[in-house]
């Protein structure tokens, strides 16, 4: 008898260009277990520990509700956990430094506001990231599948990564790195592109952002030195 909650994996290895009919879909996308706690746990387990297999079975056509709900649900829970750890650290450090309660309460109320807007913010950020990754793939040699497939990958990769926010202190960092790794794996499996191109499409935007920040600092330092001289 099949163990309860066991992850259903496809019996055949699917080619990268498998048509929609051959993709069984992630448990979250299927009729059974579907968008239920069981489907969520099975999908999470697949994405976190067998990302290659997960993205090989992920649907690449049809409605977008499943991946977006997956992202928003886990993203909101993850943001709440991050906010909770942040508030806890703020109160602990504030009490050691004799910070007035009013200041702590004010800082934590900003956190509550960020939690309230988290679902919208997460969706906007996912859309922006999808555009950037897809454009980068086009720049680096082509994206065989349309942009909505890239959005599905980003939704599942980011959604699964938000689970790491349950870990205090370093959860955000782990989630960011894990999300990038899952996105690379997903783009490679779903678009059928080489791993190097997928990695470039994900990592290059971060490198460019870092370079821009460094350039801003250099510009500022140059301006300050010029004003002193």
């Amino acid at each position: 008898m099949e163990e309860a909650g066991e992850v259903q994996t496809p019996e055949v290895e699917l080619p990268d260009d498998a048509p929609e009919g051959l993709r069984v879909g992630l448990p979250w996308e299927r009729v059974d277990p579907g968008m239920s706690p069981g489907g969520l746990m099975q999908t999470l387990r697949l994405l976190l520990f067998s990302p290659g297999a997960a993205f090989q079975m992920m649907r690449i056509q049809g409605v977008m509700s499943a991946p977006i709900v997956f992202l928003v649900l886990l993203g909101t829970i993850g943001t709440f956990m991050g906010f909770m750890w942040q508030s806890w650290a703020r109160v602990m450090l504030g009490s050691m430094a004799d910070t007035p309660f009013r200041d702590l309460a004010l800082a934590n109320s900003y956190g509550v506001m960020s939690f309230v807007v988290a679902p919208f913010f997460i969706m906007v950020m996912a859309a922006v990231a999808t555009g950037v990754h897809h454009l980068c793939m086009l720049v680096f040699g082509g994206a065989p599948r349309p942009a909505d497939v890239t959005l599905r990958v980003v939704c599942y990769a980011w959604g699964a990564s938000y689970v790491w926010m349950f870990i205090p202190a370093c959860g955000g960092l782990i989630a960011a790195v894990w999300g990038a790794v899952l996105t690379i794996s997903g783009l490679r499996e779903v678009h059928g592109i080489p791993g190097g191109r997928a990695a470039a499409a994900v990592i290059v935007p971060y490198v460019v952002a870092g370079c821009c920040l460094m350039l801003i600092w250099v510009l500022l330092a140059t301006t300050m030195l010029a004003s002193v001289a």
Binding site: L135, L138, V139, G141, G142, A143, P144, R145, P146, A147
Partner: peptide, 15 residues
């Protein structure tokens, strides 16, 4: 239909 590949000019423009 959205193009799946871009020519050199378009790629250069994106950069």
């Amino acid at each position: 239909q959205i193009p799946t590949t871009l020519g050199l000019g378009a790629r250069a423009a994106l950069i």
